[in-house]
Design a protein around this nucleic acid. Structure first.
Lengths: 135, 135
DNA sequence: TTGTCTGCAAACGTTTTGCACGACC
DNA sequence: GGTCGTGCAAAACGTTTGCAGACAA
């Protein structure tokens, strides 16, 4: 937990028990959870937790670059504490979102097109390796 | 309008005035409008139009391959009648979504990773050419 | 005529907001 | 003591659903 305390302090985010818990959950669960999933899970340990706090904390972490929103699902947002650029696969069989670590060669081309690119997002829809294997 | 009537008939979609209007709007406005934007715009000409019909029509067109959903915005869906694979740039200055016509070399690499890819979506966040030019 | 589409109203799920209480500096 | 975070409740927003009447084929 010392690790997350340090992260918050370095970013100048006021430390609270809820923020530590949410940050820890995101760092140890790279399953791209929704706000509700975070809430449900942490509520088990901290029954007083409110969904408002989950949303507030998500926004705070996002503003400080500790969190990204993953737009693979049009009906709820999912969150990802892995902030290095990578892509995602939404599996139509199990519904999970899997990280895809591949190079993205687009940035340079885009600059040539006259636009300025700040973020590159990619996502795929298909069936993940595990589901294809019949597990 | 003859053109859109033909498209609907070819797809076996029952022809109604509302569907013709929505299809025409999407075909002549490649601005990736939200359901609400479509509704607001067409309501000017057809005051009886309901939002339900906009959603119903969007779903019908999507099922028949005449429409894609663009997930660049986590809070509302946007729609695109250009169905050939391409990417999008969400401009943080003007808020517009611009089509980006570039090759996508990912599918083959992904298959090598063991997953099956059905759809490839990509989008960028940045500032479009027009906004960079100071217009 | 028959089945489907439309449009209204209500429901739904996610996210945001208003506000009082409480924690921490 | 003052600022900021929390948590409850209610609202807001996009989207979906139920249903009765209207329309296309």
């Amino acid at each position: 937990m010392e690790k997350y305390l340090k992260i918050l302090k370095e970013k100048g985010i006021k430390v609270t028990a809820q923020r530590l818990e949410i940050l820890r959950f995101l760092d140890t669960h790279h399953t791209h959870p929704s706000a509700d999933e975070i809430y449900i899970e942490l509520k088990k340990r901290s029954p007083a937790l409110s969904k408002t706090t989950v949303y507030n904390t998500i926004q705070s972490l996002k503003e400080h670059g500790l969190l990204n929103t993953v737009n693979v699902d049009s009906h709820e947002s999912r969150f990802d504490s892995v902030i290095n650029p990578h892509h995602h696969l939404l599996c139509s069989a199990c519904g999970n979102v899997i990280d895809i670590e591949i190079e993205c060669p687009y940035t340079r081309k885009m600059l040539a097109g006259g636009h300025r690119i700040d973020e590159v997002h990619g996502y795929f829809k298909g069936v993940c390796k595990d589901c294809l294997g019949g597990e």
